[in-house]
């Protein structure tokens, strides 16, 4: 064989988000067609575009499929208990105020078992970026009914169809006080990335709901086809309506999904309110938590 013909294989170009991931943990646990990986990619891309100091970014997740997100991002990552990612993140943020603290988790985790924490963090306007991946079902435990499962949709614990009204999450967040509320689907890769990028630049309780397909459970139990069918459904049924009244964005079974940025306001955060209030009341006596935390140096 002519040695000239044996060429080195072309070097494999590095994927642009590789530096943001724990590549040694790939392949990940998510099923083919699942939407969670898409959200991770959009999140990493948004981090890259904003140029934030990655050493100062923490990501917290709870339990469930989406709860594994913290484990794949090369950031300070906290895989916490079921439903408690938001209060855990609250401690991180208040313990070291200079951190950009993010929460990426699922619907069952954040608004099922963790629902109380969700509304209170929004009410306090804690400085947290919360990305909720909503696949309408409990995936990791095998397809049980979620507080987001649309009426009539089937789940393993609602085998004859769900009769419980689900949450309208943007409305829940907005009415609890969140100053930034948006919803996109896994099909809206660029818009979702922009939204995350924009939200990183905002402050307070920023809430982004991402509708994601679960071909293994939700789609199978409801005969909705593959992940690709899910994407086609989003393509045909997602309607962008920025500034929509959040009362109007509830999701029905296989009905149109309203997407967009619904709320984008400026409102003082928990820490800002604490600082201004104590500053006013206590004057020079007030000593705020230092940005680097209440760490006792030797």
């Amino acid at each position: 064989m002519n040695p000239d013909l044996v060429r080195d294989p072309l070097p494999m170009p590095e994927h642009p988000v590789t530096p943001y991931l724990r590549m040694e943990r790939i392949p990940h646990v998510w099923c083919p067609g699942c939407g969670i990986g898409t959200v991770v990619k959009c999140f990493a891309t948004a981090l890259e575009r904003t140029g934030v100091d990655l050493e100062k970014v923490s990501v917290c997740s709870g339990i469930g499929c989406s709860g594994r997100t913290a484990g794949y991002l090369r950031l300070d990552g906290f895989h916490t208990t079921h439903g408690r990612a938001i209060p855990f993140a609250t401690g991180l943020k208040l313990g070291r105020p200079e951190l950009l603290v993010t929460v990426v988790s699922g619907d069952g985790d954040l608004v099922g078992i963790g629902g109380n924490h969700f509304i209170h963090a929004a009410r306090r306007n804690l400085d947290l970026l919360v990305i909720l991946i909503n696949n309408f079902i409990y995936g990791m435990t095998g397809g049980q009914n979620a507080p987001t499962t649309p009426l009539t949709a089937r789940s393993s614990t609602m085998p004859f169809g769900n009769f419980e009204p689900p949450f309208n999450l943007p409305h829940l967040a907005a009415s609890s006080g969140a100053p930034y509320v948006a919803r996109w689907t896994c099909l809206h890769i660029r818009r979702l990335t922009w939204a995350i990028e924009e939200a990183i630049g905002r402050k307070g309780f920023r809430f982004i709901e991402v509708i994601a397909p679960c071909p293994t459970l939700y789609s199978r139990l409801n005969k909705l086809g593959t992940g690709l069918n899910g994407m086609r459904f989003y393509h045909d049924n997602a309607e962008i309506r920025h500034g929509a009244d959040t009362r109007d964005v509830a999701i029905g079974f296989q009905e149109p999904i309203l997407c967009g940025k619904f709320v984008d306001e400026e409102r003082p955060t928990f820490s800002e309110l604490m600082d201004s209030h104590y500053g006013e009341v206590l004057g020079d006596e007030y000593v705020a938590m230092p940005p680097e935390g209440g760490f006792l140096h030797e």
Partner: peptide, 18 residues
């Protein structure tokens, strides 16, 4: 909002060294 949250926040805060 409750003791579940209190304890979770304490664990989170401790990871900042505080």
């Amino acid at each position: 909002e409750d003791e579940l949250a209190s304890m979770a926040a304490v664990v989170g805060a401790s990871w900042t060294g505080t």
